[in-house]
Design a binder for these strands. Structure first.
Lengths: 121, 121
DNA sequence: TGTATGTATGATCATATATTCAAATATCGT
DNA sequence: ACGATATTTGAATATATGATCATACATACA
């Protein structure tokens, strides 16, 4: 059914302590990395990570985010678009402002975990 | 002491419900994102994330990692170098092989958290 | 000591990404 | 309706990054 070529024994390190079966099993057990990789990638850029951090602690409009981050409104808006597309943040229109907030408990848990150890360099 | 220019009131959204003080405080409270962003960036690439996942579950030499990931030894080795430089994985020479394993509990905790929700798209 | 195996490295290339700029859109107050 | 405020968008650009290739290095074994 699968179009994958069969794994051959020659593809393995000879005399490796783990056998053919282990490599096959490891390959089969590998979950899809797509979503998780995208998530980490979104969080792996300092401007976006800062935005997520700020929204973790409160709600902010675009202009103030840009001020706090010493960045341009345009740049912040571009990053917010990405975060919105990934449903990590949500936008609420309030008058002529758009106020952003976190939209994913998942992200809070990851940040909590990540910043817990921060400064262990 | 700081070379930062003083924040001016004009830099703020007028009539924002949060006041000048909040923006100043938010700016001051913002932790350094450097390390955490680097960490997420390292994990935000599917080949590297897969490597970390595999090493989370066991120990593997470079050749077998490449086989499991359908990638080249060279490519995997380059990624391992990055992960080594960040002290996320460690290398152990065993004969002519180099066996890699995780070198950071932190990463395990993050992966555990991340994959817990995977497939909630 | 030579050869095969296993890994690391540097250069190159194609692509992806962050940022800036200019301009468009939308909302409020006068 | 007009001007000011607030945000979004697309294009252009510079930089970063992942993959590949060729090659160097290092170890085991004959």
């Amino acid at each position: 059914m699968s179009c994958e070529p069969e794994l051959e024994r020659e593809d393995l390190c000879e005399a490796h302590e783990v056998d053919f079966r282990s490599v096959e099993e490891a390959k089969a057990s590998l979950p899809d990395m797509g979503y998780v990789a995208e998530l980490f990638k979104a969080m792996g850029e300092s401007t976006r990570l800062s935005i997520l951090y700020l929204l973790w602690k409160g709600r902010w409009c675009v202009h103030d985010l840009a001020t706090i981050l010493d960045s341009s409104v345009s740049n912040v808006s571009h990053h917010l678009r990405l975060l919105r597309a990934m449903r990590l943040v949500k936008a609420t229109k309030e008058g002529r402002k758009v106020v952003y907030s976190l939209d994913d408990d998942h992200v809070e848990a990851l940040m909590s975990e990540a910043f817990k150890h921060a400064g262990h360099s």
